[in-house]
Amino acid sequence: MTEDCILKIDGVTKRFSNDLDIAERTARKLGAKIEPVTVHAVDGITLDVRKGEVLGLVGESGCGKSTLGRMVAGLTPPTDGRILYKGQNVAELKGTAARDAALRIQMIFQDPMSSLNPRLQVRDIIGEAPRVHGIVGRREMAGYVEDILAQVGLDPSTGKRYPHQFSGGQRARVGIARALAVKPDFLVCDESVAALDVSIQAQVLNLFVKLRQDFDLTYMFVSHDLGVVEHISDRIAVMYLGRLVELGDAEDLIARPNHPYTQALVSQIPTFETGKKTYQAIKGEIPSPMNPPPGCHFHPRCPFAHDRCRSEVPVLKQVAAGRMSACHLNDSAA
């Protein structure tokens, strides 16, 4: 797994803490019990992304999947751990090397409207970065932008328009075109189809599949929608409250989920099966990441929880070929 690994996430943790202001610090000195609140958005995740694959990252809202995506895209620095792109720690690069590495990893955002600058014409939205970074000369610019627009299925003549003159699906395509314009080889798609109608979702997903072949791209596909992720991914990583709970080949993971949380998620995917199906919602609410439960984060909602789950954090272990899971039940079964 080392040779074809394009991106290595190595023990990455992200904590958000709100620092105390002057009034709170003073109150604390005077004896008030005020502690800075820390949120473990991402808690020690280690993950390899292989070149050319689509890695789906799923989990409930608030589980830290978007934060992980933003860290990979270089928008948020990790508190701990390293993100290695082709063996290099992106955070330690300087100058043009840092810029080049940053351009290789691009992000596709969730909201197609707010991710486009409303004051710029589409040709400037797409063409600005390649021009500034000298990827394309001034003269070839018009043709370059038209090519990219055509690649994402937009009419090349739409370059003169502003974002508000497009439909949602078209805006999503503009966002993809903007990322492609700097010739990336890794795309982080953060809920990139969640804001679209289902029919448009399918078109944009198919576009992702096509572009992956045309440009030899690797995707990290962040979504809360297991159905979407199942459709597009080669492998799926399941996150719960900042931790990775299961990782495996997409079909296999959906067909035979190992972790109780994954089992619960998979049982919620709508199917076309006839007959009555009772939906069993996962018990309870996702706990607050400010005050996560000890041991396995999932134990308060897990039907199989036992004493060990309440005290000891399960580690991610290989449970089958190409399948990792973090659950104590795998130990007792063995």
Partner: peptide, 17 residues
């Protein structure tokens, strides 16, 4: 806080730009 600023940062544009 809007995504287009993040997108611009992702494209390694300078702070001034």
């Amino acid at each position: 806080r809007k995504d287009y600023i993040d997108a611009a940062r992702c494209l390694a544009l300078s702070d001034r730009r």
